[in-house]
Simulated scan of single mutants.
Amino acid sequence: MNRQARLIGPEEEKRFDAFIASHPKGHFLQSYGWGEVKATTGWQPLRLVLEEGGSIVACASLLKRQLPYVGKSILYAPRGPVVDFHDANLFSELLAAIDGVARQEGAILLKIDPDIPESDTAVKQLLREKGFRLANKGAGFEGVQPRHVFRLDLTPSPEELLANMHSKTRYNIRLAQKKGVTIKDDCTLDDLPVFYEILKETTLRDRFLVRSYSYFETMWREMVERGYARLFLAYYQGEAIAGALAFIMGDKAWYLYGASSNRHRNVMPNYLLQWAMILWAREQGCTMYDFRGVPGDLDEKNPLYGLYRFKKGFNGTFTEFIGEYDRVYSPFYYWLWQAALPLYSQGFRRLLFWKKKAAAVE
């Protein structure tokens, strides 16, 4: 087979995204626009395509991060690459092309975390044969992308979807409607500051970090305006009390960012928000709705068990992915990176959290 690999530029964005949207393993994190979002946070996006007869047959959106002082970099393909992993020859050709990019960019590793279920032993064996090593074995949120999610099949009718939910979830959706909670699903950029204020309130309550407002502005420009995301806001008595961002790529949708105010939580806005996003995704022709991360540790004493219970109530399928796999190009620098990164990340996150908390108090 005469297949050719090359890096593409912005003039081929629509063609690149069209292939990802049509592929069974296509993901919004592999889209051209998401690479532009990550470019504002120190990553350099590199879009690689493998073509045959003028058509794309596989691709990868690679994020390159330059490492300080050593003149090296890392490559990361979030939820990629976009390829049929069960076609060993096709995967091998794409991997060879990625290896070429890695050499040019001085990469010490390639990290992937593809949308492949843990039960797929054939793909795990293929990755091992190609020199990949499992990089993360945690049961929680230790990875870059969540290893455990809930996924909802959207092919049943709305009535069937409701009927299949846990009775408490169905009750809370109807309670929100009865209490007068309304959903604004035609948000504009003017609504983004409203969402961000609720998001900051959420981060302080639940003790997690949040990106800067400029990051969400970029996300709006690169994803919402491209038609790959939409903002939803829940209102009660004229006040926005919850919000969420939903993403879409082809026939798949994802819930990514959610926020809720400390006020009026008893009217259950988050349940109605999810239901509105599910209906929207279904109207867009989606057949799958991904609730994103839940803990793998299902002990009820786990602080994140409430998140698991909330998402489980919508009757999605608990899904575990194969996790992160690293292809190592430089064993010494990889060891150094593995040793230094956890210490750096813990210190940076702790410092950033307390700075944000102090600023909120002031």
Rank of each mutant, 00 (worst) to 15 (best):
R230H: 08
L343T: 12
E51F: 03
I112F: 08
R226A: 14
Y215I: 11
A96E: 14
T317I: 12
V210Y: 10
K124W: 03
D186A: 08
P158N: 06
T169Q: 13
A96Q: 14
Y196L: 10
K38R: 11
E129S: 11
P193C: 10
R3F: 00
V123C: 02
A122T: 09
E12L: 15
Q274D: 06
Y215H: 15
R327S: 02
A281R: 01
D297K: 13
D185N: 14
T287F: 09
Y334N: 11
P24H: 06
E300P: 14
P303I: 14
P295S: 07
F321C: 04
K178V: 10
E52T: 10
K38Q: 09
R226G: 00
Y76Q: 00
K357C: 04
L126E: 11
N302Y: 04
L29E: 00
T169V: 15
T182M: 06
K130F: 02
R103N: 07
R170Y: 10
K38D: 01
H86A: 03
R309L: 15
R265H: 03
N172K: 15
Y329C: 02
E222I: 03
V37G: 04
F141M: 14
K312M: 11
R3K: 10
K252Q: 08
Y171Q: 09
A96V: 09
G323F: 10
P78R: 13
F332I: 14
S345E: 14
E225I: 09
K137P: 00
D87A: 00
V224Y: 01
R151I: 13
R65A: 07
I112D: 03
K72R: 14
C187Y: 11
S214I: 08
M288D: 04
S22N: 04
R211L: 12
A88N: 09
L343H: 15
A163I: 06
L162A: 14
G138E: 07
E225M: 13
D17W: 07
P295H: 10
A135H: 12
F291G: 03
K14V: 12
I278A: 03
K357P: 01
T41L: 15
I108M: 05
P10N: 01
T169P: 11
S345V: 15
N89P: 01
K184R: 15
E105C: 08
I241Q: 05
K111T: 07
K130D: 02
L352C: 10
D185H: 11
L154V: 01
E12R: 15
K252P: 00
L352Y: 12
P156W: 05
L48S: 01
N2A: 11
G106K: 08
R292W: 15
L279F: 08
V210R: 12
S167V: 14
L336H: 08
W354A: 09
V101R: 01
Q30C: 03
T41W: 07
Q338S: 15
K111W: 07
L307T: 13
Y196G: 06
S22R: 04
M1Y: 06
R226F: 00
P342G: 00
R147I: 04
A229N: 04
N315G: 11
E52H: 14
P146R: 03
F85V: 05
L161C: 06
D326M: 09
E201N: 08
